[in-house]
């Protein structure tokens, strides 16, 4: 006889392996996991915003913001913002579609979201090529590229998740009962959108 009791219920034979995990939350474990991950991401972005605001307030005598010689493309980034916000609508549409059993809506919503996310990222890269300053050009250049680059990396991760969801959608995965593979990338995508609204309002507008 071993020191540990066997995991199998030998009397009834109903359950094999360890007992099922207790779930006290109303949120499913995968969704809760994504929310906890996003909480850690908020802290990461918070550290970058702290650096940005430190640079901004440490020189209260500076004549303006951004510093002289730096011009950020407010209009182009504004159009990019509209594209990213719209992609949240299409993402939401995709999930609502599969919840109603509408596979064509799911596929169209995911493809549109993917296309708009890709457009955002390509426009961001073009902006970097034409903005006229580099990360090494004073602290402003560093925090500008740091914050927008951090966000761009998150867009890339979001696009990777969306690509997987899109391929699965076209292979016939997901149903009105089982759609975590769309819902969880969707939550991440909305987070990426939220962070961009904060980044755009802070760096480009205020």
């Amino acid at each position: 006889m071993t020191a540990h009791a066997p995991a199998v219920d030998v009397h009834h034979g109903e359950h094999h392996g360890p007992p099922p995990a207790h779930q006290s939350s109303r949120v499913s474990a995968p969704v809760l996991g994504m929310f906890l991950f996003i909480a850690s991401e908020v802290m990461l972005f918070g550290s970058f915003f702290t650096a940005y605001f430190f640079v901004r307030v440490v020189n209260p005598d500076a004549p303006g913001w951004p510093p002289e010689g730096f011009h950020v493309p407010v209009f182009v980034a504004g159009v990019n913002t509209a594209i990213l916000v719209t992609s949240s609508f299409t993402m939401h549409w995709a999930l609502q579609s599969i919840k109603r059993g509408n596979r064509a809506g799911l596929q169209a919503g995911l493809v549109l979201t993917l296309a708009m996310g890709l457009t955002f990222l390509l426009t961001q890269m073009l902006e970097y090529a034409r903005v006229g300053f580099a990360p090494r050009d004073t602290a402003f250049g560093s925090v500008f590229y740091g914050l927008t680059g951090l966000h761009g990396a998150h867009v890339f991760v979001g696009l990777t998740l969306l690509t997987v969801a899109t391929v699965r959608a076209f292979r016939g995965h997901f149903s009105p009962e089982h759609h975590h593979g769309v819902e969880i990338p969707g939550i991440y995508w909305h987070f990426v959108d939220v962070m961009w609204i904060v980044v755009y309002a802070t760096i480009y507008l205020l």
Binding site: R26, V27, V31, L32, F35, V85, S88, M91, H92, L95, Q96, E183, G186, I187, H190, F191, D193, V194, I197, V198, A201, L205, L206
Partner: peptide, 27 residues
Amino acid sequence: NPLRSEAEAFRFVLLLLGYFAAIVLAK
């Protein structure tokens, strides 16, 4: 956790958009 699902995360996007739009408009 104030958010429970994708739908609530989506609503949060819209609310945040209005929040920042009001601040930027005032500025």
